[in-house]
Design a protein around this nucleic acid. Structure first.
Ligand SMILES: [Mn+2]
Ligand SMILES: [Mn+2]
Ligand SMILES: [Mn+2]
Ligand SMILES: [Mn+2]
Lengths: 218, 218
DNA sequence: ATAAATTTTTAGACTAACCTAAAAAATATA
DNA sequence: TATATTTTTTAGGTTAGTCTAAAAATTTAT
């Protein structure tokens, strides 16, 4: 139905649409896919032909309902494979993205349904991102950035915003693990750094870190 | 390193070389890959550039040592994925080929090593075909076609020659399962059909079937 | 409101992987 | 051995997906 490349475009547009109201610009897509805006223009014309996006020259693109569902399914596959790699093949959470990037393009509805069952129908991937259901629906939980918590507030660490290996490895080193309770002990005014406790340990983290960690308020 | 298409060519040449002494003709490759001989000529030139095959105009191609190792690794991936699909995801042996055909192209050495371990280092795929080791070496066991057995001889059913879904589903229907002991009760002269026993059942099978089942003599 | 800067599209070109039709080489046949 | 048949290669063309450079549209700044 869709080529490897078309699928990557769809997924990118899907992600970009999640945090933006307006049409997605060719430049934004190009930046994400590390390609050129002119290549994006060509591709969005094709995607428009295939009725997965609405494209108005100079106005950017938006996914159609069909496009959204198609894209969500690719995201579903990506995240399920990530769970598989971590849970079953002992990959660490900073190693899975690249491989999932390939696996997400495997075409077999049975494969993905069986995988889902094999993994006991996970709801989130190793980075705390929600896994779309078969119909492409995302159930979004209300989560806040750690940086928005006040002194003495606490919550469960449920996800990361930046999921680069560098950041993930940094979290590993600090001992910050998804699913653990984090309490803000102290909040420094002048640099917005935090003193937190997690698993009986106390540690100090910068605002940059706090801006990339999601907390579900208790 | 190699494109999806190059990998498919390598794998095809590898399989064709297993039962042929001479160079593999462009026509043979074209037939297998359902493409045209002229396309094959183009591709073998490229593969020759990349030093995975030796190509002499009008003389066919042969894999180099490097090409053989590369091809064996693709076959290794294909067969490990087939095991995974059957053992872990409840696919039946007639459904796995198409999906493995896609999965074999996923590039990640760690993935395949971990998968191998996860599956407890299987030596054969669901069709009884051997899985090459990390270095591309195949350990071939001596097996015979069921059609070569004489009356009252017996052996373990270890593989199929034809692994089309039609044939595999036919075997399922008949109750012929890999790993089971088969005894030849009777051999008809005029049509080479056999009366066999398997798992306490007696059944009659045609020569065509007997020519597509491998037996390890007891 | 005009001009300048930025963004986006168009035009033209490239490569990979195919194709068809024609030419050339190898093989089979008389 | 000469001729006919088959196999293989070459020549030229197509499509997908990419690129650079130039043109056009939009946005920002004066
Ligand atoms: Mn991808
Ligand atoms: Mn993820
Ligand atoms: Mn393949
Ligand atoms: Mn197989």
């Amino acid at each position: 139905m869709f080529t490897h490349s078309e699928e990557n475009y769809l997924k990118t547009i899907y992600h970009l649409e999640l945090d933006s109201e307006k049409g997605i610009s060719t430049n934004a897509i190009a930046k994400q896919l590390e390609t050129k805006a002119s290549s994006v223009t060509d591709m969005v014309k094709k995607l428009s032909e295939k009725e997965v996006v609405i494209y108005k020259k100079y106005k950017g693109v938006t996914l159609t309902a069909f496009g959204k569902k198609t894209a969500a399914n690719i995201v579903r596959k990506h995240r399920l494979w990530e769970v598989f790699l971590v849970e079953k093949l002992n990959f660490s959470w900073d190693e899975v993205h690249e491989v999932a990037e390939q696996l997400e393009h495997i075409k077999s509805p049975k494969l993905i349904n069986q995988l889902d069952a094999f993994l006991s129908f996970p709801t989130h991937d190793p980075h705390g991102d929600p896994i779309p259901d078969k119909n492409g629906n995302l159930k979004t939980i209300e989560k806040s950035l750690l940086s928005t918590l006040q002194k003495n507030e606490c919550g469960i660490c449920v996800g990361v915003d930046d999921s680069s290996s560098e950041f993930l490895q940094f979290l590993d080193k600090k001992g910050i693990i998804l699913g653990e309770k984090i309490t803000v002990l102290e909040k420094e005014e002048f640099d917005d750094s935090l003193q937190i406790s997690i698993q009986d340990k106390k540690l100090s983290i910068s605002n940059k870190i706090a801006n990339n960690l999601y907390i579900k308020k208790a």
